[in-house]
Design a protein around this nucleic acid. Structure first.
Lengths: 257, 257
DNA sequence: ACCGAAAATGATTGACTTTGACCAACATTG
DNA sequence: CAATGTTGGTCAAAGTCAATCATTTTCGGT
C-alpha cells in the first residue's frame, strides 16, 4: 500500500472516530507499527492530526468530537431541507393529496418526501418507508407505519442496500413517492448513492402508480447513478424549466408561469 | 483505551451530571481507580473539572466564577441525590464497555439501551437495533448500523411485531442488550407490550451472550408479558435491592452498597 | 534490462511512559 | 471511636516510543 493511501486511511478513520490507537491501525493498514508511527508523526507535523501517546486524535481537540460529528451530519440533512423550501413544499403538499383510502403507500427517504408527511391526512392507508425519521414522524402522527430493514445511512437517515431492496419484495404498493437528485432527458432519474438507487428501483418496480417528486432545480442535473428512466412514473414539479421535457407528457407542473 | 478517550468520557459524564465518583467511573472507563485518580488530577490541573474528595465535579462555564467557588465548597459528591437517570446511565455506560472488536451486537429499543449509544466507542463492530431513533443516532456517530423491518410503534419508536421478529432470524449475534420493564423472582423478565416481547424473545434466542439492562427500580416489578426467565442472560444493574436475587448468580451489580 | 543510490519498510532494542495493585495514612460517617 | 471509604506514594508489569539496522522497493541513469 502506498504511503499516500495510508495517510488517507488514517485521516479517514479519524473522520469516523475521534481517536485511534496505533495497534488498531495495524490490521486496517496492513503495515507495521513502526511504519504507522512514522506516518502519524508525519501527519502530526503537517498538522492533519494530533499525535498522542498510544495513537492519534482528530484535529480540533478542544471540541467534543462526538457532539461535533453528530451536529455536522444533522446539519447535512438540515441544510438540504432548508434550500428551496417553498418549491419543495408545493410539490410535497400536492403529492400528499394523491393518497386515497385503502392505499398501500411507499414513501422514499429524502427531504422532499419528508415534507409530504405533515400534509398527509389519510388515516385509512398503510405507509411503508425507508426513511427512519419519516417512520418516526408518521407513527407519531398516528398512521399505520412500516419500516424497511437494512443498513442505515448516516447522512440521509435512510435504510439502504441489498437488504432494504430485498425487504421491499413482499409489498405490492398502490402508490409510491420517490425523491430524486437529478432529472435529465438523456440520463433519466439519478441519485448520488448506488445503494439508495437499488431501493428506489425496487420500489418503483413494485408499485402500480409511481410519482417522482422533483422541484424545478433538479432538471438538467445528473447524479452518479441512474435508478429509472423519465418514463418510469409521473414527475411532480413546481415548474418545468425547459419545455423540451414536456414531450414526455407525464409531468405535473404545479406553478404555471 | 487512549488517555484522551478517558478524558473525554469523564468530561462528557460531567456534562450530564454535576458530579461523579471515582468508583462510578471504573465501570464506565474500564480502568483502575488509580488511573482514574491520575486522570482527574490531570484534568483538574488543566482546569477542565474540579477534583473533590471522592470524585470530581463539573465546572460550569456559564456560571459566574465566584459563585462557582461557593458551589465547590458546598458541593459534596458523597451527598448523593442521584436521579433514576443517573442509575440508568451507570448501567448503560457499563454495558457499552462490553462491546468488543468484531462483535455483531443487537441493541433493543428503549430508554436505557438508548443511553448506551453515547458511550459506545467500538467502531469495529456492527450494530443491529429495532429502535428507529437508536439507529439514527448510531449511524450519525459513524457506526455500521442495521435496522429491523416491521411496524413502527409510535410511543417507543420501536419496530415491533411478527415482521420484526422474523427479520431477526437471519442474524446470529455475539451480544445482545435488552431492556426490561420488570425483573421478578417468580415471573422473570417482563414488558408491557406483547409485540415488543416477541422481538425481545427472538433476539435473546439468537445471541451468544445476553445482557439485560435493569436499573434497581425494576426489581420486583411485573409487567403484562414475560419474555424470558431470569436465567436468560446476565442482568446488569446499579444495585440489587433484594439479596435473594443473588442466588441466580448472573447479576452484575455496579454500585456496591 | 541492469545497476547502484535513495527511500521505504519491518524487526529489534533499550529507554521511557502508563497502568494496576498494594498499602499506610488520612477523611468521613454514624 | 470504630468502621468504612478515599488518598497519594511506591513498585512491578505492561505498553509505547524513538533510534538503529538489515532488507526490500523505487527510481534515475546507463
Amino acid at each position: 500500500m502506498l504511503q499516500y493511501e495510508r495517510f488517507e486511511k488514517i485521516i479517514d478513520t479519524l473522520r469516523k472516530q475521534p481517536s485511534v490507537r496505533v495497534v488498531d491501525l495495524v490490521p486496517i493498514l496492513d503495515a507495521s507499527e513502526s511504519t504507522i508511527r512514522r506516518d502519524i508523526a508525519e501527519l502530526d507535523k503537517e498538522g492533519r492530526l494530533k499525535k498522542v501517546f498510544g495513537g492519534a486524535i482528530a484535529i480540533d481537540a478542544d471540541e467534543d468530537p462526538q457532539a461535533r460529528k453528530v451536529n455536522v451530519q444533522r446539519s447535512d440533512v438540515n441544510a438540504k431541507a432548508k434550500t428551496r423550501t417553498d418549491e419543495k413544499m408545493i410539490v410535497a403538499a400536492y403529492a400528499a393529496t394523491l393518497i386515497e383510502k385503502g392505499d398501500l403507500v411507499y414513501i422514499d427517504a429524502g427531504t422532499t418526501t419528508g415534507s409530504m408527511i405533515e400534509h398527509i391526512d389519510c388515516y385509512d392507508a398503510t405507509y411503508v418507508t425507508n426513511g427512519a425519521r419519516h417512520a418516526i414522524e408518521l407513527a407519531a402522527r398516528g398512521f399505520r407505519t412500516y419500516l424497511l430493514s437494512g443498513q442505515v445511512k448516516a447522512s440521509t437517515e435512510a435504510i439502504i442496500g441489498y437488504d432494504a431492496a430485498d425487504s421491499l419484495r413482499k409489498y405490492h404498493f398502490n402508490k409510491c413517492f420517490i425523491g430524486t437528485d437529478g432529472v435529465d432527458q438523456e440520463n433519466g432519474l439519478s441519485t448520488s448513492d448506488i445503494e439508495e438507487s437499488m431501493v428506489k428501483t425496487e420500489a418503483i418496480k413494485r408499485s402500480e402508480k409511481v410519482y417522482i417528486l422533483a422541484d424545478s432545480s433538479k432538471f438538467g442535473l445528473v447524479a452518479s447513478v441512474t435508478f429509472a428512466g423519465l418514463e418510469a412514473g409521473t414527475i411532480i414539479t413546481d415548474r418545468i424549466p425547459d419545455q423540451s421535457y414536456q414531450a414526455h407528457g407525464n409531468i405535473i407542473e404545479l406553478k404555471r408561469q
